[in-house]
Write a protein that binds this DNA or RNA. Structure first.
Lengths: 119, 119
DNA sequence: ACTGCACTTCAAATTTGTTTGAAACCACAA
DNA sequence: TTGTGGTTTCAAACAAATTTGAAGTGCAGT
């Protein structure tokens, strides 16, 4: 079986696939329903930021209360620089944000961050 | 300022953090509200599987219809082996599944996969 | 100015994930 | 049986993310 789609140039394929593809307007029709490359890359990057258990732990902690690195360090059980690295990843992804007080820095979760934890 | 929590062993910290922490039952109380390590690792792994634009494109395509690798290859615009690699990652994560027909393999999205695409 | 503390940055080492092309596999047809 | 098309597997090359420990920054108190 083959599909009439020009982009496939006579490529053989299962009958069921060929007809579903024709119904959808061929490869071009299907591709119109897929988010643009730029958006896919953005979403992929977001998932990348969440693809680490230490970062997820930090995010969960901050979903309960604002915290300074000194406490996050104990909770995540990591070294200072490691913590700092992960905080930076999360902050670049805008999942958390931070502010300064006298002696400390205080991190808090953003709306984006909250959404990322939602089931 | 410091928190009465023993796990912090006299660690200095912002007043606001100390009181929020005490209210939550200290570090132990806070940690009880954070999913277990095993679950965090599982979720992190799921995000890792989604942290690639090619895989997201495949997932979106399959959310529209079942497809064979020969068509996915055109849609994702990648080599055979590259496609196969990404399909394997998605299938191991149970975001997609596959079945055999006569000459072809047909991939389809799972419920998990659908959920992963939902906003 | 000097010190100590909280935290971040840096660059090198390490680990992990991805890409590549060649080879293998598998079902079917000739 | 041999050939062919569709697909997967493999190992090596490559790229990207993470870890490490040392050095650096900036703020307060002395």
């Amino acid at each position: 079986m083959q599909c009439c789609d020009k982009a496939l140039n006579g490529q053989a394929m299962p009958t069921s696939v060929a007809s579903a593809l024709d119904d959808a307007g061929g490869v071009r029709g299907l591709m119109r329903r897929i988010p643009a490359e730029a958006k896919l890359k953005r979403v992929a990057g977001l998932h990348q930021s969440l693809a680490d258990h230490t970062r997820l732990k930090i995010l969960w902690a901050l979903s309960n209360m604002d915290l300074c690195p000194c406490v996050l360090k104990v909770i995540a059980d990591v070294s200072d620089s490691k913590l700092s690295y992960h905080l930076k990843v999360l902050e670049s992804a805008r999942l958390i944000k931070s502010r300064r007080t006298r002696n400390w820095r205080i991190y808090s979760i953003t709306n984006e961050g909250e959404k990322a934890l939602a089931p």
